[in-house]
């Protein structure tokens, strides 16, 4: 088999998997809590900077995960309490507030780490030969880790008691309260969990992409496109949406150029919003 083709295939799969992971966090906050968190990308950025920070301290890469979770949790908890909770009933203001939050987080990271581009060394060096293509081993690990993470979360959501209670809360909030589910606390934990997930994705991505304060914008937009195309109702929508958006962008970018790839994805999302506002897999 053609090594180049395999490499392309792997690249596209990588894009899709990463996109699915980042979108999952956004899907949790938007699909379950109804808050479109425009600062979602900034939590990916914070995750990536956690990896950068950890490495600059000479700590092992794996230490970045607890650091990212701590950072996202420590920011996310007060954010939910003071910013999101008062605005659950005003979704339009919530967009604005999270847009302000994204600005604040960018500026804060810029304040501490500077505006420039940083790089994080890959903890696993070397390449693996897959069907004739030499592919970076670390990217394979990231892909597998992302798939495992998504699968675990979905499995947990469907099977655990807490997962069922979240479903119950989303399905019928009044009844959830009536049966004694502490809805406020559950919503807060869910929100913070979504942010931590973004942070974890950031840690995974840090060694592969350029780490800088404005890196989040791209992720929030693309995850939004994923949710537009895939719909919010079902995990299948997330997978399909990531496939369509990630696949289309990677393919068109490879064939023509990055601008065309991005335009294509944008136009695709516009068409979906226009003709199929509920996405491919409706609730």
């Amino acid at each position: 088999m053609d090594g180049l083709l395999v490499a392309h295939g792997l690249n596209i799969s990588f894009e899709i998997v990463v996109l699915a992971l980042v979108s999952l966090g956004l899907a949790i906050t938007l699909g379950l809590l109804g808050v479109l968190n425009l600062a979602h990308g900034e939590f990916v950025m914070i995750g990536a900077f956690s990896a950068f920070f950890v490495q600059s301290q000479g700590w092992p890469y794996l230490a970045a995960f607890p650091v990212a979770i701590l950072a996202c949790g420590a920011i996310g908890w007060p954010v939910e309490k003071f910013l999101i909770r008062p605005l659950y009933a005003r979704p339009f203001d919530a967009i604005l507030a999270t847009w302000g939050l994204s600005l604040l987080l960018r500026e804060m990271v810029e304040f501490f780490f500077g505006r420039g581009f940083n790089s994080v060394a890959q903890p696993i060096k070397g390449t693996v030969n897959i069907l004739g293509a030499d592919y970076p081993a670390f990217q394979i690990v990231v892909m597998l880790a992302a798939i495992a993470l998504i699968a675990t979360i979905v499995f947990w959501f469907l099977r655990s008691v807490t997962g069922r209670r979240i479903q119950a809360m989303v399905d019928n909030p009044d009844l959830a309260k009536a049966v004694g589910i502490p809805v406020d606390a559950l919503a807060r934990n869910t929100f913070v969990a979504g942010l931590c997930l973004a942070g974890i994705s950031g840690v995974l991505l840090a060694p592969i992409v350029a780490v800088h304060p404005s890196m989040g914008i791209d992720y929030v937009l693309k995850s939004f496109f994923v949710l537009v195309v895939g719909g919010l109702g079902h995990i299948l929508g997330l997978v399909i949406g990531s496939g369509v958006i990630g696949g289309a962008e990677a393919t068109v970018s490879a064939i023509i150029d990055r601008t065309s790839g991005y335009s294509f994805v944008l136009i695709l999302s516009l068409l979906f919003l226009w003709r199929r506002p509920n996405g491919l897999v409706a609730r």
């Binding site: 479109l36 425009l38 979704p91 339009f92 967009i95 847009w99 914008i217 791209d218 937009l221 939004f224 496109f225 537009v228 601008t259 991005y262 335009s263 944008l266 999302s269 516009l270 919003l273 226009w274 506002p277």
Partner: peptide
């Protein structure tokens, strides 16, 4: 044709300016 959610409009304009 559609009554678009305000959030969606905001993000589309962001997408357009990035494009």
């Amino acid at each position: 044709g559609r009554t678009l959610n305000g959030a969606y409009f905001a993000l589309i304009t962001l997408g357009l300016v990035l494009l």
